[in-house]
Simulated assay, not measured.
Amino acid sequence: MNFYHILKSAHSGWRYLVLILLVLAIITAIAGWLGKKPYTEGNRKLNVFTLIFVHTQILFGLVLYFVSPLVEAGIRYWKMEHIGMMIFAAILVTVGNARSKRGDDPSVKHRTIALYFGLALIVIVASIIQMTMVDPSRSFFGVS
């Protein structure tokens, strides 16, 4: 097994950790926002870990972008759409995490995380679904 296949497997598997952390952060943020709960150190840590995992996934993806034969083959989805959507999702997570730190009101912090992380999750899921349509040999839940 060469470096490309190891990295591709890591990138495919890491997405589950990213999706789980995003869903947990969004659920926690919505519960905190609607339940008028305080913004705790646990909330902050969950959001930072989500940010770190998203950025790690982007790093895996960027390395794959430069070593992948799919990009060299000129498949438009991999060259433009997938990477663009994923970078946009990472920007949403980064901005959401940064903006949540600014406010003093816990409700605003929770709402900011719910909004930005939620939008990032929608972009990521849409990109994964689009990937399964571009390459039918891949599945949403299967490690490819």
Score class of each variant (00 low, 15 high):
F3E: 08
H5A: 14
I6H: 07
I6W: 10
S9M: 12
A10L: 05
A10F: 15
H11N: 14
H11G: 07
S12M: 12
G13Q: 02
R15D: 08
Y16T: 00
L17W: 04
L17R: 00
L19M: 05
V23T: 13
A25V: 06
A25D: 11
I26Q: 02
A29F: 02
A29C: 08
I30Y: 11
A31P: 00
W33H: 13
W33A: 09
G35Q: 07
P38L: 10
Y39P: 10
T40P: 14
E41G: 03
E41W: 06
G42T: 15
N43P: 01
L51E: 06
F53A: 11
V54K: 01
T56Y: 05
Q57T: 06
Q57R: 14
I58V: 13
F60Q: 12
G61F: 02
G61N: 11
L62A: 12
L64N: 07
S68P: 06
P69K: 11
E72L: 02
E72P: 02
G74W: 01
I75G: 05
R76S: 06
R76P: 04
W78F: 11
G84N: 02
I87S: 00
F88W: 01
F88C: 11
A89V: 03
I91L: 10
I91D: 04
T94H: 04
S100A: 15
S100G: 15
R102P: 01
R102I: 12
G103V: 09
G103I: 05
D104C: 09
D104F: 09
D105C: 12
P106T: 13
S107A: 15
K109C: 15
H110Q: 01
A114H: 10
A114G: 03
L115Q: 06
L115G: 01
F117R: 03
L119G: 12
L121H: 07
I122L: 15
I122P: 06
V123Q: 06
I124W: 03
A126V: 08
A126W: 11
I128S: 06
I129E: 14
Q130V: 10
T132H: 06
T132G: 02
M133E: 14
P136S: 03
S137R: 14
R138I: 13
S139D: 07
F140N: 10
V143G: 10
